[in-house]
Nucleic acid binder design. Structure first.
Length: 515
RNA sequence: GGUCCGUUCGUCUAGGGGUUAGGACAGUAGAUUUUCAUUCUACCAACAGGGGUUCGAUUCCCCUACGGACUACCA
């Protein structure tokens, strides 16, 4: 291989939100670039004006920023090969299409959509194994290969609509080496005369992609497996354009599959299966009804970007060691294309959740406190930083998502309005009630949160035993009386955070209400 | 239909001509926690099938089955 500079690109179409398969493709490109000291480029492939979706480009940008993929060259940042939007590069492609025609590798085709349909129907009816516009069928069509020269010229001059097609050879083996799959060999008869230039003057993906990758000096093309069948076509294009010696290396990544059943993960699966398929929430429009739609996003559901990245990196790649927790930096160091697997991977919701829990627990209390503080502010509740940190500290082992803090810690801010019925039925009785009343009286009569868990526990034991009972008989009732819940973090830690005045108040309320 | 790609526990995967086929997630059980969660321990669980090659194949080759992608003037 050559030792030319490593330059990779992620080249999405702005046709909607970027799903996690796309994020993974971007991630692998990024990891390789950083690993090899190369350059990460983002190019927007917006040659299909009909499918352009407003906002999609910003969405892609925001998604990549959120997961921590940095771009060295992009439409927003610019770079030595600007512009980075294909729509803005439109004038550049024509020249290469013309070059191909001049060199006899491409031709004009004037067939109408109706004529093309008729051709396919005819082929299908004749049971032709692979109906396509190719070295055989083009002889029956209206193109610059079949029409007299002067008629072609006249059509061109008259402004008749036409496309430019690649003239794929009849019998030739096209081969290339894929970094993941090894040698891939396809016979040219299986490739059709692909349209290179559309009648609207825009190039198709195939032409634009090759021209841009060449002009941008791309060294490695890392993309999804859905591109594997057209890779031989691309190889032909490099050859005919005279760029074969600088053709990038290809790596076709295994697809991401639906968690259930089969098929590649698609936009709709998220709603159907109840998990996000997008990095960020997406507000779109239903294609049929025109109704506004909302698609769930990992960010909005409380996933930490480092968890998503770690999970995605392991879907189709592994370091070959037992280590599973990797920061972005560690991924960069460990990554290699050779260890990307060939077979597709099903998406596993449990595993992402596990990663998320891991990263959540790894965060500092100070880092977690804002999540709780934010939710409190939304509910019009105040809380100081120190208390918020105490709460997340006792809670973080028992939550999966940041938003759970508020759900699980609600009773720290609001006195219980109901009590867990099972515990009440099982543990509550007049004797217990009396013990709790005594404990309420014994608590220091102020709301200073000075008393620590140990002190409160000792006081509890002492009080309960003075009533002729064992702590175990009353403990559950104490939790329910103070928090309303049957389960939670260490009870006396909880009470200490609550403050003795508040605890005493809650106990008296419970005694009154439960008898 | 055609072309191409793929196939190890339920899932993500390691491994590789001779292994008790390893790990992680999930699941189950137990320990700890007078709760729940955490943590710890154990258990459950896989080489798609058939032919070769070989002393020996899950590993190499072929076929079959199954799965997937592609097959547009979409990317």
């Amino acid at each position: 291989m050559s030792n030319r500079p490593v330059r990779v690109r992620f080249a999405p179409s702005p046709t909607g939100p970027l799903h996690i398969g796309g994020v993974r493709t971007a991630l692998y490109n990024y990891l390789l670039a950083r690993k090899l000291g190369g350059t990460m480029i983002l190019r927007i492939e917006d040659t299909d004006q009909n499918r352009f979706v407003p906002g999609a480009e910003d969405y892609i940008r925001e998604s990549l920023e959120w997961v921590g993929i940095e771009l060295d060259e992009s439409p927003w940042k610019g770079g030595p090969h600007a512009p980075y939007r294909q729509s803005e590069r439109k004038p550049m492609y024509r020249e290469y299409a013309d070059q191909l025609i001049r060199d006899g590798y491409a031709y004009y085709a004037f067939d109408t959509p109706e004529e093309l349909d008729a051709m396919r129907e005819r082929l299908q009816a004749a049971k032709v194994p692979n109906p396509q516009y190719n070295s055989i069928t083009r002889a029956q069509m209206r193109n610059s290969l079949t029409l007299p020269e002067d008629e072609v010229k006249q059509l061109l001059d008259s402004g008749a609509p036409y496309v430019i097609r690649l003239k794929v050879p009849r019998k030739e083996e096209v081969r290339f080496q894929d970094m993941i799959r090894g040698w891939v060999v396809v016979h040219s008869s299986a490739i059709d005369d692909k349209v290179l230039m559309k009648s609207d003057g825009m190039p198709t993906y195939h032409l634009a992609n090759i021209v841009d990758d060449h002009l941008m000096d791309i060294s490695h093309v890392i993309r999804g497996e859905e591109w594997l069948p057209s890779a031989p076509l691309h190889v032909l294009l490099y050859r005919y354009l005279g760029w074969e010696k600088t053709m990038p290396q290809f790596a076709h990544l295994p697809l991401l599959l639906k968690p259930d059943g089969t098929g590649k993960l698609s936009k709709r699966d998220g709603d159907r299966l109840g998990f996000p398929v997008f990095a960020l929430e997406w507000h779109g429009t239903d294609a049929e009804t025109g109704e506004p739609t909302v698609s769930r996003g990992y960010r909005e559901e409380g996933y930490l970007p480092e968890a998503l990245v770690n999970f995605l990196a392991f879907l189709g790649w592994n370091p070959g060691t037992a280590q599973e927790i990797f920061s972005m930096q560690e991924l960069i160091e460990a990554f290699s294309i050779e260890r990307v697997s060939k077979s597709p991977a099903k998406f596993d919701q449990n595993k992402v959740k596990w990663f998320n829990e891991h990263y959540l627990r790894a965060k500092s209390d100070a880092g977690l406190a804002p999540y709780l503080l934010g939710a409190l502010a939304e509910h019009g509740l105040a809380c100081d930083q120190a208390k918020a940190e105490q709460i997340v500290a006792v809670m973080k082992e028992r939550v999966s998502f940041p938003q759970d803090f508020w759900q699980e810690a609600r009773y720290f801010f609001e006195a219980p309005t109901s009590y867990d019925e099972q515990v009440v039925a099982k543990k509550w009785n007049p004797q217990v009630s009396a013990a709790l009343a005594a404990y309420a009286d014994a608590l220091p009569d102020n709301s200073e949160p000075s008393a620590n868990a140990e002190v409160l526990k000792a006081l509890f034991t002492q009080t309960v035993e003075a009533q002729g009972m064992k702590p175990g008989q009353v403990l559950q009732a104490l939790r329910v009386a103070a928090t309303g819940a049957a389960a939670g973090p260490d009870l006396f830690e909880t009470l200490a955070i609550l403050g003795t005045g508040e605890v005493a108040r809650r106990l008296r309320t419970a005694v009154e209400r439960l008898g």
